[in-house]
């Protein structure tokens, strides 16, 4: 089994004549927080769908948690967690029902579900809302709950697709502190965001432009390579050449 959490080599996906992801090669070490950045339409979502075993690459290969994303897609999905802003929890189920549902899907026993529910709700301070419908709890809590539920089966890697949209600045920062606590336990985190200040919190990051990785490294390395004062400036130069 590979020591790398993610090892992508020449990963490519074409849709007809359009190359959405163009031979990207990168790796993420176990326990790293990796920022996966790019403009809308740069290919981030397509790349992520290949990494979580939902979309077959046109060429190239990748292993995630040591499993090949094509041959062992099932094993990949068992060993990862996924949370997105758009879909994560069922609004018409209660907090407890959502946890039980996901626990069941991941094959946890009732005892495990009960134990982990208790810990999870304690950690995010949501015990009082166990019987609330998810659609009635505030967005910030919903995000923390979705994140915790995606970790319920203790995956080695968690993929977060724009997890912090629309929340206040304090809630956004608390979410990142949860990300750090999670990484500190050895879980790898791959996260996409439109907040470039959040990208500064990553151990390493990549910036995709037109399907390819145009910059990669620690936030300091990336800024250094472009002689830029901020990631915002790097992002602007990469995505709108000539504008800056």
């Amino acid at each position: 089994m590979s020591a790398l959490a993610i090892d992508a080599r020449g990963l490519t996906r074409r849709f007809g004549d359009f190359t959405a992801v163009d031979a990207i090669t990168f790796h993420v070490a176990q326990g790293e927080v990796f920022g996966f950045l790019g403009a809308n339409g740069a290919g981030k979502t397509t790349a992520m769908r290949m990494l979580i075993g939902l979309l077959e690459p046109s060429s190239g290969s990748a292993t995630v948690a040591g499993y090949d994303v094509v041959r062992d897609a099932e094993a990949v999905r068992r060993n990862i967690g996924y949370m997105s802003q758009k879909f994560s929890l069922y609004d018409d189920l209660t907090v407890q029902e959502n946890i039980t549902l996901y626990g069941g899907i991941y094959g946890l026993t009732n005892a495990q579900i009960a134990e982990r529910t208790r810990k999870l709700l304690g950690r995010i301070g949501l015990e009082h809302a166990r019987k609330e419908l998810v659609r009635r709890i505030p967005l910030g809590w919903k995000q923390q709950l979705a994140f915790s539920v995606a970790l319920l089966h203790q995956p080695r890697i968690i993929f977060l697709d724009e997890p912090t949209g629309g929340v206040d600045p304090i809630t956004r920062r608390r979410f990142w502190e949860m990300i750090y606590e999670t990484a500190a336990t050895g879980t790898t985190v791959l996260v996409t965001t439109h907040y470039l200040d959040e990208a500064e919190y990553c151990d390493r990051l990549s910036i995709m432009v037109d399907g390819a990785i145009a910059a990669m490294g620690t936030p300091g390395e990336v800024k250094g390579a472009f002689g830029a004062a901020s990631l915002d400036e790097v992002f602007l130069r990469l995505t709108r050449p000539g504008a800056a």
Binding site: G38, A39, N40, E162, G165, G166, H194, L196, D232, F235, L236, T239, R240, A243
Partner: peptide, 10 residues
Amino acid sequence: TTGVDAVSRR
């Protein structure tokens, strides 16, 4: 501009 990348927002 919600959900729009930083450069498009600008």
